[in-house]
Structures are given as structure tokens and as C-alpha cells.
Design a protein around this nucleic acid. Structure first.
Lengths: 191, 191
DNA sequence: GTCTATATATTGATAGAC
DNA sequence: GTCTATCAATATATAGAC
């Protein structure tokens, strides 16, 4: 928990976030980060003692971003159905990046879910943010007992179709599936 | 295309298949394969000149297995609806492994879909096998124009819920979602 | 805080005896 | 076909001058 706001530290995190997303964590080397930032090796170690520490910071940074996004939606949209539609719209809006590199949360969890990684839980917390937020929206929209199951159903469909769009290089697959989900949201009974 | 049927070569492929699945390709080293098989480094290089060549062989091996599975289903089940149900049942049956390590095809494509991998296309062909087979079943069951979209929808949902089951360590999530898919299959109009 | 130089371990890969 | 010994490149990480 540093209280300083050094630009260099932010640059490292932003570069690592991009590289981990596009190349994966294991395949991204310190040299990649050095080349991409222009910051020298020794200086990076001044801010992060290990590569794992950079990963921690990247995950924290993503968590901050997603929390801010969901918080902004909460403030702008009082209707839970509109909030769910906003989530669906976000996926559709990001379909080009999703097609190119996959879902940043999904692919990170896929990589870090493998054996001998100690970041499984912190990566999972990125999913928790959306799962809990979606659960709250489904709960206030209808049957609270089914809210969590519906949230995981929705997250799963978004992740699955993102993977298919990625594998088959087709953003329209993502748009079509999310349209089906939008129709499903429209049919849900109000509370 | 070797015509010899050496046991050593098969041992290497089987060990690599297991390790690539559980640890990921990038994180699996030659030392891992040596330790897991008991075969010495130099001997492995007698069968495979590079690590990439082992990956090629593992993907080919998986393709052979999946083709055999689908072919067996074709022979045993004349009704396309039963064949679709058989696919759903396979996912449910594998839910423990899917929960522990994720989907072997999905996680492989997620890793190899990242930048600077030259195995993207061969990994995608594993999905092609199921996509094309599912497309054929949907086509003979009803509207052929929607068959491919339905196949990708089904594959996406299976992949997505496998990821959620993996991330949240909950095989029941997979069973529940695949049950929904089974209900959907039951409602499809016959040709 | 930033840099150069370097340490140390591990990686994929080779050479060659048997 | 199997093995030991080793290579060259790259990985993460450290030491210390400025």
C-alpha cells in the first residue's frame, strides 16, 4: 500500500497489464516490460521486488477499474434491468478486443488456475466483483434465491462466447449471443 | 508421420498431454517431462527435435481421440437429438476434471491464442471437430441455416460454464448449466 | 530514483559415447 | 535407441555507482 503516486510505478503497471493480457503472464519477461516502457531493469526492481509482485499490482489495478465502472453504473442507472443491459452492452462494445486477445479476466483465470500458481484466488476476485454485482441486480429484479445462479449463468455465457469469438476471430458471434442474453433479461419477471 | 509404433514416443506424448493440461504449455519444461516419464533428456530429443514438435504431437493425439469419440457416437446413436444429449452428458461426466484443470481444449486455445504463438490454428482445429459435428446434428434435427450458430452457442455455453466451475471449484455449476442445455435440446423442432 | 553491470538458475537444445 | 555431459540463450534477481 504505497501512498506515493510515482508515475514510473504506474507506467510499469500499465505496461505489464497490457503485456500480460496480450502475451500471457508466463510468456511476458522483464525484458518485454523494459522494452515496452523504456525503464531500465534495475529501476523496475526498485518498485517491484519480484515478477509476482507486478502481477499482484496488475490484478489490483484491474480490480480498482472494475469497481469504479460498476460504481458508476450504480449511480447512473437506478433500474436493475438497465444495469444488466449495461453489462451486456459493455461486452458487445469490447468485442473487438475480446476477439483479438480473449477476455482479460477469463484468460488470466485460465492461466493462473493451472498448477503451482499462487495467484488463483486473487485472480478469482476479479470474477467475484462481477458475480456479486450481477447477483445483486438479479436479486432486486426477481427471485433472490436464483440470483447467484443467474449471475454465474450470465457470466459463463459471456465468457464462453468471448472464447468462441476469440478462437474463430468473429466479433459477430459475441454480438449475437449477447443479443440473446438481452432478450432473456427482458423476459425476467419484475420483483 | 512416423510409421513406427515405439512405446517411448507414446509415453512422451501422454506425459506431455497431461502436463500441458495441468500446468499449461509455457510452464511445462523439458525437465518436467523427464521427471514425469523417467526418460532422459537426450532420448526425448531423439523423438522430438523441439518443444513445439511435442505440442504438435499432443494436439494431433487429442484430435485422434476426439475423432474416435465422435465416430463411436455416430455409430451407436442414429438420432441426432440423442447425439447432442451424448455430448452434453460427456461434459457432465468430465465435470470433476473440468473443475480442477479447466477444459483441455478451451484452456489450450486460450493459451495458444495469445501473441506470438504459431499453434493457434492447430489448436483451433480441436474446436472445429466438435463445432462441425454439432453443426451436422443440429442441421439434421431442424433448420440447417441456424445449425452452425447453434453449435457455437452450445460450445460457448459448455466452455463458459466449465470456466466458471473451474474458477469457483464447483462441479455442480457445470451439471446445472448442462441440464438447462439438455432442456433446450428437448424443445428443438424435429426436421 | 535511475542506471550499468553482473550474479545465478533454468530454459530449450546439441554432441557424441555406448 | 538410450544415455551423460554440456552448450548457448534467456530467465529472474541483486549489487552498487551515480
Amino acid at each position: 500500500m504505497k501512498t506515493t503516486h510515482g508515475q514510473t510505478r504506474e507506467h510499469i503497471i500499465e505496461a505489464a497489464k497490457l503485456l500480460f493480457y496480450r502475451r500471457g503472464y508466463a510468456r511476458t519477461s522483464f525484458s518485454d516490460i523494459v522494452e515496452h516502457t523504456g525503464i531500465q531493469r534495475g529501476n523496475i526492481y526498485h518498485y517491484f521486488k519480484t515478477k509476482d509482485a507486478i502481477l499482484d499490482a496488475v490484478i489490483e489495478q484491474r480490480a480498482r477499474e472494475y469497481r469504479a465502472t460498476l460504481s458508476a453504473w450504480d449511480k447512473a442507472l437506478p433500474d436493475p434491468r438497465d444495469r444488466l443491459r449495461r453489462f451486456v452492452h459493455m461486452v458487445v462494445s469490447n468485442r473487438e478486443d475480446l476477439t483479438r486477445y480473449g477476455c482479460p479476466i477469463g484468460s488470466l483465470n485460465t492461466e493462473l488456475g493451472k498448477e503451482e500458481y499462487r495467484h488463483r484466488e486473487s485472480a478469482r476476485r476479479l470474477f467475484d466483483l462481477f458475480r456479486d454485482w450481477l447477483t445483486a441486480q438479479f436479486a432486486s429484479l426477481g427471485d433472490p434465491g436464483q440470483a447467484r445462479a443467474r449471475a454465474l449463468h450470465l457470466l459463463g455465457r459471456a465468457e464462453g462466447i468471448s472464447l468462441m469469438g476469440h478462437v474463430y476471430n468473429d466479433p459477430d458471434l459475441i454480438a449475437a449471443e449477447m443479443d440473446l442474453i438481452g432478450q432473456w433479461i427482458d423476459t425476467l419477471e419484475p420483483a
